[in-house]
Design a protein around this nucleic acid. Structure first.
Length: 116
DNA sequence: CATCTGACGACCG
DNA sequence: GCGGTCGCCAGAT
């Protein structure tokens, strides 16, 4: 897994929305899971428009320690994301990375060949 | 090669 | 809901 793929996905997060390390890990099938995604973000090259601040912990928790924590907080608030304590209302601001045009199609029990 | 350290997350009490 | 544990794995030492 190249971190580049992670960065590309993060770039797609719209302003005012957030997603989680775990989500990214699942969608891109990162071997190391969420933790490695966090590691990738920590090493994300600055000045390349990567909105790292839009990536939060599971459930919308802000887990970044200082000195970047407060920065993330500021950036998010400037985008209109409401922060309560150390967390965000993920139900409201969460952005699903998955292309959900593809809803899970429930397998119809196909018509039972009715014998007469 | 052995250990340690995380911008994580699921679980459990 | 909150803190503690444990599993995860990629670098750093």
């Amino acid at each position: 897994m190249s971190w580049d793929a992670i960065y590309r996905l993060v770039k797609r997060i719209p302003r005012g929305r957030v997603t989680t390390y775990g989500e990214i890990a699942r969608v891109l099938k990162v071997r190391g899971g969420a933790r490695v995604v966090g590691y990738a973000m920590a090493g994300s090259p600055s000045g390349q428009g990567i909105p790292w601040h839009r990536v939060v912990g599971a459930g919308g928790k802000l887990i970044i320690r200082e000195p970047h924590g407060s920065l993330q907080r500021r950036l998010l608030e400037s985008e209109g994301v409401e922060i309560l304590g150390m967390r965000i209302n993920y139900k409201l601001y969460g952005w699903p990375p998955v292309r959900k045009g593809v809803r899970k199609r429930v397998r119809r029990p196909a018509k039972i060949p009715r014998r007469t």
